[in-house]
């Protein structure tokens, strides 16, 4: 298994944990750090975080599985969160999701053959003013039409090749 956190990261977190009253509050930061490094959070990642924070793996898992954007299963390099809530729906979100499925040749929840994209329908992303919207990594995109989506996908494919 690839390294989940660098020794330097672990030292930094340890130092931080020693200074705060409720280490629990760092669960998400640590899980995100593991995810940034590893792409997703394997069981070993949950156990690593639990060990650092003095919690049981279950206590970390309760948080990890609550959040949609902590991936407890392998995902593509660019997980796409496509909003399926009311504002985006009223502005063509459904058609946009269909277009994504067709152009990536995957169903919701699946990862494209090239391993780059995972399509994850999600509830409101909080950018209703830019509906219909999607989110890739930590960046949100919108308002989108099919051409915009194609352009974003092409850019990311290019980035992946570089």
């Amino acid at each position: 298994m690839a390294e989940l956190l660098t020794a330097e990261q672990i030292d930094q977190f340890r130092a931080h944990i020693a200074h705060i009253e409720h280490p629990r509050e760092l669960i998400i930061d640590l899980l995100r750090a593991v995810q940034d490094k590893h792409g997703w959070v394997p069981d070993e990642g949950v156990e690593l975080v639990a060990g650092l924070l003095g919690l049981t793996p279950l206590e970390v898992e309760e948080i990890a599985t609550f959040y949609y954007k902590i991936y407890r299963r392998p995902v593509g390099r660019y997980p796409i969160h496509i909003c399926d809530s009311i504002c985006c729906w009223s502005r063509g979100g459904e058609a946009l999701a269909e277009h994504l499925q067709k152009s990536l040749d995957i169903a919701p929840g699946e990862t494209s053959a090239d391993g780059l994209f995972t399509l994850l329908p999600t509830c409101c992303l909080g950018v209703c003013g830019r509906a219909p919207a999607m989110m890739i990594g930590r960046e949100s995109y919108g308002p989108l039409n099919n051409e915009d989506v194609d352009r974003v996908l092409a850019e990311l494919r290019q980035e992946a090749q570089a």
């Binding site: 279950l58 206590e59 599985t65 609550f66």
Partner: peptide
Amino acid sequence: GRDFGAMGS
């Protein structure tokens, strides 16, 4: 107890 809890949403 600390080994049984609620997961997911």
